[in-house]
Design a protein around this nucleic acid. Sequence first.
DNA 1: ACTATGTGGTCATGCGCATAACCAGAATGT
DNA 2: ACATTCTGGTTATGCGCATGACCACATAGT
Lengths: 355, 355
Amino acid sequence: MPGTNGRATQADVARLAGVSQATVSLILNGGDTGRRRVGEQTRQRVLDAIRMTGYVANPAAQRLAGGRTRIVGVFTYEPVFPRDSRDFYHPFLVGVEAQAEELGCDLLFFTSTPSRQGRRLLGDGSRRLGVADGCVLLGRHDDKRDLADLLSRDFPFAFIGRRESDAGTVPYVGADYVTATREVVERLFALGHERVGFLGDLRRDEPSVDRAQGYHQAVRAARSRPVVLDGTGLTGGEALDLLDDNGLTAAVVWPSGLAPQIRAAALARGMSVPGDLSLAQLGDVEDGSPGDIDWTGFRIPREQMGAGAVRLLFEQLVGPALSADALQRSLPCDIVPGTTAAAPGRTRSRSGGVR
Amino acid sequence: MPGTNGRATQADVARLAGVSQATVSLILNGGDTGRRRVGEQTRQRVLDAIRMTGYVANPAAQRLAGGRTRIVGVFTYEPVFPRDSRDFYHPFLVGVEAQAEELGCDLLFFTSTPSRQGRRLLGDGSRRLGVADGCVLLGRHDDKRDLADLLSRDFPFAFIGRRESDAGTVPYVGADYVTATREVVERLFALGHERVGFLGDLRRDEPSVDRAQGYHQAVRAARSRPVVLDGTGLTGGEALDLLDDNGLTAAVVWPSGLAPQIRAAALARGMSVPGDLSLAQLGDVEDGSPGDIDWTGFRIPREQMGAGAVRLLFEQLVGPALSADALQRSLPCDIVPGTTAAAPGRTRSRSGGVR
DNA sequence: ACTATGTGGTCATGCGCATAACCAGAATGT
DNA sequence: ACATTCTGGTTATGCGCATGACCACATAGT
């Protein structure tokens, strides 16, 4: 039985086994310090004593002494458990949890960092990360300083989703949006469309840039002309007008949430999708939109990304130093043929409905 | 700038401010040790130094030295992020997260405890809880030893959902299923049903016991006769037969998942709900079942329970010792009138359909 | 016999913090 | 004049663990 409170320490175990505390620690932390250490009978006595006392390491002490806690921090820029269940981030976390369990790690969510307007700020709160061995980060964010901050510490971390910084190599597990987008656009060209529009978010964040790049690759390969349209803040109808004005018979839409609205607007005008207009999404359509359309486009391997980030973090913790290449990983996306893209209609009137 | 690695310590701050480390600690942990301590100008110098160094406490050290970490542990008997999204536990966690954020606490999920068949075992892993100041527990479980274990340590915790143990007063935030069930059953009697059946899980776990108790209270008050039927493992059709055999025109169903199946079976036999049979559920119907019926019954205040458990835990941590009464809290459930209960039909044939 | 080379352990130390115990100097009382 | 009480700190210590330095002893090499 342990000391005064409920918990046995290594010292308790040592006393019971008739050895020193250091020996107990040695046995528990294997012979990673080079030579194989303790004798078999001593080891057994100690292990027995551990069983008898019910000893389990105090993680705080382990951490303080420079050991590992097997705690993986998770920082999300949005709430971990959002109230509306159409939750884009959930699948990432499914992967994170599964992988953490497999590796025997606990997950520490930094909910203490105050959130403003539903978005959490990393900022100085990053100091709190320190309990964990390392940290996985998730969510859309725009503050490049976070990255520089993180890189400047020696604190191990891994982003879910590609992130770049001037300050160094950002470890991440991303999805190959470039290739996926290229393939989707290629498919539209292959269906016979002369031009394929890119309608979406034109900001310079990585997810947007990657998609734009894949788009341009495909357009170039098809010897077509790029039509890049800013879809920010547009309603479905406005976006449809924009496509129409440019005489487009096909377009990829990013972020994907806009796609169902465009389709709805098109249907309302008596147009058909994909009969009159082919649409493809560049990521997951958030949720069962009414009708449950099987969208042409690609699917982000969210669970695998989550799991991969935890694994990447873990490898940084235990293995030898990783090369810059090994720190940045991309997973392929699944291309979904879907039913919202087809060959262009014979006649495409300039105004497919009420304007 | 701190020492060798990335992180400033109290010693760094102290050096910069020209005081001792203890003074820094004193300033940070207020004058809770009795007398008011440091002078105003010293305090300012130290606070400035803290700002300059960007010092943030190392939680591991705080914990080891007997302080608080503002980390709340969360132990769930099921995965925190289940793959199928019809997720009963999600709303609890929404509440937990919101409350933790409000209190400025981080959330540590004990994913390291291995799970067998999708269920996590607490068992000895409970020792790992120790990094956190306390722990919130969630999920259906049957091992009474967990509770005894937890109670025997000095470790503060709070259950989401009522739990009882011979070993002492289990702190929890539950829902008042007794009252809610009674009111729902009363409502069915008030509609004119002579007898109301209780179809469900007859095990001795707290949620089931509470519902059974509420049921019996209502039956007694209505001077009716209890009809308690074991619905374990039944299909909708079998359950319907069972109700039919007992000549029931109304029943409450627990767990609620069975209710939609019974209704479906009834409709398939040409019966009407609530025309021929009134049904009510005793908890949340898991998910948008086809048709999206507005079920008669009650709703569990899951978010509030989650938040309440965190608050209960917090009060144990900071406040004075709580009385047994204050450790066990029940929240009222919302009664939902719904559309699946009505007055009994005039004629109720013994066999409402194909047998 | 006397050094190499293991083998199986112990000792000492420090991680960063909280906190009890102590102490110098000033203000106050008598 | 001296004892008393504040005020504003400082010193010392230990939480539980990991780990480098060290050491007694046995076995083998020449």
